[in-house]
Simulated assay, not measured.
Amino acid sequence: MSASSRGPSRNTNQRSKTTTPPLASPSTSSASGVRAKPSDKLNPKTIDPFAEPQRSPSAFAAIYSKGGIPCRLVHGSVKHKLHWECPPEIIPFDPLLINLAEGLRETRHPYTFVSQEGFKELLMVPKAAEKALPLLPKLAAALKTALVHSDGAVFERGLNGLVQLSAVVGPALNIHLKNLLTSLSKRLMDKKYKDSVTTSLQKLEHYGGKVISDNSL
């Protein structure tokens, strides 16, 4: 075959190559969306094992975010305080006081302050003892979770809450103290908490009577 007969064929091939549109880059996506590629089925997206896991909100945090806790933290220049959406004396203790007791085991702000201050202030309203008595089993269970918590600050909030509750309901709390006092025994051996636990036990005995001595450490 002559060179002249091969020339047009070679030119035709070159023209066909130059007119062929370039293939789109796999990483290129249109503004309207990304077209699924066959490789997506073979290589599905996976979770980054090094990414920081997102922590689910606690029960108290979820209730707080939905407005179930009718008080909010007010930042002061010197001291923080709570603002109640309505007078706390007209708020039913069930379930608010239980929710606040469960919130004592929180470790994040502002939940730590709201639960601790809210629990204390709610127990200061008139007829608090009458309102709290039917809730003692649930309150004792909530305080137990704070007292056995590994975080020392949570333990101290639970301890304060226990003393505050005892000051309001008195001997009525004694029946629930057996399980609660055993939680204090481990902390009593810790030099850091020995004084606060000892003082709290003295207050519990004062509010609950001598019967506490039979159940104490």
Rank of each mutant, 00 (worst) to 15 (best):
M1Y: 12
M1A: 13
S2N: 15
S2A: 15
A3S: 13
S4D: 15
S5G: 10
R6N: 12
G7A: 15
G7S: 10
P8E: 11
R10H: 08
N11K: 10
N13Q: 11
K17P: 00
K17L: 09
P22E: 10
L23K: 10
S25A: 03
S25D: 13
T28P: 01
S29I: 08
S29A: 07
S32H: 05
V34A: 04
V34M: 04
R35A: 10
R35P: 08
R35C: 06
D40F: 05
D40W: 10
K41I: 06
L42Q: 11
L42F: 05
P44C: 11
K45M: 14
T46Y: 08
I47W: 13
I47E: 12
A51G: 12
P53G: 05
R55L: 06
R55G: 00
P57T: 02
S58E: 00
A62I: 03
Y64W: 11
Y64G: 05
S65D: 07
S65N: 12
K66L: 04
G67E: 00
G68H: 02
I69H: 00
P70W: 07
C71V: 06
L73Q: 03
V74F: 13
H75D: 05
K81H: 12
K81V: 05
L82P: 04
L82Q: 00
L82W: 06
W84K: 00
E85D: 14
C86N: 09
C86T: 11
I91Y: 02
P92Y: 03
F93Y: 05
L96R: 00
L96D: 01
L97A: 04
I98P: 10
L100A: 00
A101Q: 01
L104W: 02
L104A: 03
R108T: 12
F113T: 12
V114F: 04
V114I: 15
Q116K: 11
E117D: 05
E117R: 04
F119I: 02
E121F: 04
L123R: 13
P126I: 02
A128D: 13
E130G: 15
A132H: 14
L133W: 13
P134K: 06
L135A: 06
L135P: 09
L135V: 04
P137E: 01
K138W: 01
K138I: 02
A140S: 08
A140L: 01
A142P: 06
A142L: 00
K144Q: 14
K144W: 08
T145V: 10
T145Q: 07
A146Q: 06
L147E: 11
V148T: 13
H149D: 09
S150F: 08
D151I: 02
A153F: 10
A153I: 00
V154T: 10
V154E: 06
R157Y: 02
R157I: 01
G161A: 00
L165F: 00
S166H: 07
V168E: 05
G170N: 07
G170V: 03
L173A: 01
I175P: 10
I175V: 07
H176T: 01
N179W: 07
L181T: 09
S183E: 06
L184R: 11
S185P: 08
R187L: 05
R187N: 07
L188Y: 09
K191E: 14
K192Q: 09
Y193C: 07
D195I: 03
D195H: 15
D195R: 08
T198E: 12
T199M: 10
S200I: 01
Q202W: 09
Q202P: 05
K203V: 06
L204E: 09
G208D: 03
G209P: 02
K210A: 09
I212V: 15
N215A: 13
